[in-house]
Design a protein around this nucleic acid. Structure first.
Lengths: 376, 376
DNA sequence: CCGGTTTAGCAAACCGGTTTAGTTACTGTA
DNA sequence: TACAGTAACTAAACCGGTTTGCTAAACCGG
């Protein structure tokens, strides 16, 4: 006896393609089986292990399938194979802000390079109707690369309980998971020491605002760690960084401009600014220009990240380099390793940062006069 | 009689979470049903239409589910609901090059904003082992936004035959589908006229290279249309743009630098460059600087796109603005419209471009001398 | 000509959910 | 008391594939 009646619906499916519009009913494996006079199994074999079939039969099945316009349904295939072939990029920010941040451009480059070479697609997952956990529940991925998930995030426990293999980037929120970190403390310390060493005393910090549900930095998050290191290094130089001198905004050029304008109009007239992102640093430079300041003569600026653009600003941006692309690559590499050999000890990677001195930093104005450099 | 034996496996599943590691076997709906003493149907209702259950029962089921750490399997759910809640972004380039291109950053912002507000996730689909069609076959999406699919692409027919709702951006390869275009011709013409009007005669075009399997522009592709319009407008001004004066490279700062260096060292010393991408224009500016040229005194540069960075270069970049963000938004909007009411006439959108004159264009050097501006 | 192996293909079980079409018990009405 | 209507829940079918276990025929050496 052949397949049950519902397993074949050749009459529903036109043999020829109706000219570009999506057809009413997509052909199923049973339709192909019926048309080729074989079982579903045979059709499945023809696609997945043709060597198990007589070559002629396999050939014929594939021809019939092509005529019908049949493609194995990817979702059904995922269900049986128990893998999706997709890697999820999990971010607590909205995707529209992610993509506006040049840091992510670079990070995604690395992720994409690694994912592509292993044949994985990339699914970007951000809070769904405000809930990260809900979005995670809907995501059809083999595992996550979670970037910048702050320790204090309200939904973090639910995300962890989802139980998918997850590699954290810029976060240590799940101690038992693999993660990729960058030596933010050293980077921030180098930036602060550089500025303090140039004689600056009146310093402002411009930071990336924490993602939506949160209102302040967790001391263990990236920005919190950077801020802590700025503070410590400045304190060592005898400078007290008060909260009023730490401004936050979106990690974009506009965000940096807004921060600087706000500060300047509030009467804060620093001689140096430590920015936690290059995009914001570039914004600061431009806003400073609007107020007639010249960089680095009147204002020194240090960025963070060393995005491509940093070397092309004028003057070129002094910044802290972190291997952003590599961060993405490593994260995917760790994830794939974990996916392959399940009970793998989660690996952990710490990447270095370093100070790149370019043209946006100079001795503090007061100091320059002392050493005989005339202010114009 | 209760469910079949295989439908419940309470013994496989620990009640408590074993401390962060992914559990061996994920609880299934039958496990919850068994533990709560109800049917699978009831569990499904508890999650999807709780009003169909006694509130207390629903509550109890959800509690049991939570204890077991049960989440409905998203792939199984997709299969029955016949929707994925995901929009695919289809690009013929590798993702690593996509993310390195600031144009895509902006475009993705628009796509993400529109997708997010409708609760859709974003899946990036690029050639899998060199084949776009194969990647399309694996993609679990409700529809595609295909960007920059050139008309002559070898796999285009297979992509179309996949039969998924698709909106094209910067391409008219599928005449029967909806698409979002930008008035590239007018933009390119304005750029060329601007340059010709400034007296330039020695002009170079720097273009974005076509995606991997292709080697030259299709005249109907974005870059082909822009090139055509450059040519026409220059011809009108009596200038013949020969093929040797059209260089292509990756759409990045480095790509622009490479193009300029190659040209300059080959003895091409133009007074103006028309770049088909802002990133490349920025690269050209820097490479020109390396050769001691001053912009716009010695060399005029016009970009294309008007990315964020364009207004922050020095001098700020003269360019053709196209509403890139909006392009992404419109594409998703059209796609969602088509997904909702199936037999919708595919919409088509044409967005304007315009010339933004900033600081990188000036009269041709020879001309300046004539009008009395001394060359230093 | 015989037992053993290989080849080719099939039916049924399975992946993990949702949905349809009931069934049962209870409530309200005439 | 009978009957309709509803609330609460369920068994079985279904989504569209893959995989397992099996059978029948062809092949093979002795």
């Amino acid at each position: 006896m052949a397949e049950k009646a519902r397993d074949a619906n050749a009459d529903r499916v036109g043999l020829t393609d109706p000219g570009g519009a999506a057809r009413a009913t997509r052909p199923r494996i049973a339709d192909v089986a019926h048309a080729a006079g074989v079982s579903k199994t045979a059709v499945s074999f023809a696609f997945n292990s043709p060597q198990r079939l007589n070559p002629e039969t396999a050939e014929r099945i594939l021809e019939v399938a092509d005529e019908l316009g049949y493609r194995p349904h990817p979702v059904a295939r995922m269900l049986t194979q128990r893998r999706t072939g997709t890697i999820g990029i999990l971010t607590p920010q909205a995707l529209s802000v992610v993509f506006s941040n040049p840091f992510f451009g670079l990070f995604n480059e690395g992720v994409a390079a690694a994912a592509e070479s292993s044949g994985h697609a990339l699914l970007f997952v951000s809070p769904l109707h405000g809930s990260l956990a809900r979005a995670v529940g809907r995501a059809t991925v083999d595992g996550f690369v979670a970037v910048g998930l702050p320790e204090g995030h309200p939904e973090i426990e639910q995300v962890r309980r989802a139980g998918l293999p997850t590699i954290l980037v810029d976060s240590t929120a799940f101690p038992a998971h693999g993660f990729v970190l960058v030596d933010d403390e050293t980077g921030a310390r180098l930036a602060a020491e550089h500025i303090a060493g140039l004689g600056h005393r009146d310093i402002l910090v411009v930071g990336v605002e924490p993602p939506a549900p949160m209102t302040s930095y967790s001391p263990d998050g990236v920005m919190g760690r950077r801020l802590g290191a700025y503070r410590d290094a400045l304190a060592t130089a005898g400078i007290d960084l008060v909260d009023e001198r730490v401004l936050v905004g979106p990690a974009s050029i506009e965000g940096g401009m807004a921060c600087f304008r706000r500060a300047w109009e509030d009467g804060l007239h620093p001689t140096a600014i430590l920015a936690m992102s290059d995009a914001m640093a570039i914004g600061v430079m431009h806003a400073a220009g609007e107020f007639g300041l010249s960089i680095p003569r009147d204002l020194s600026v240090v960025g963070f990240d060393d995005i491509d653009m940093a070397r092309y600003t004028s003057p070129p941006l002094t910044t802290i380099r972190q291997p952003v692309r590599r961060k993405g690559e490593e994260a995917v590499r760790l994830l794939l390793a974990q996916l392959e050999q399940h009970p793998a000890a989660p690996e952990q990677v710490l990447l270095p940062t370093r100070l790149i001195v370019r043209g946006t930093t100079a001795p503090a104005p007061s100091l320059r006069e002392e050493v005989g450099v005339a202010a114009s």
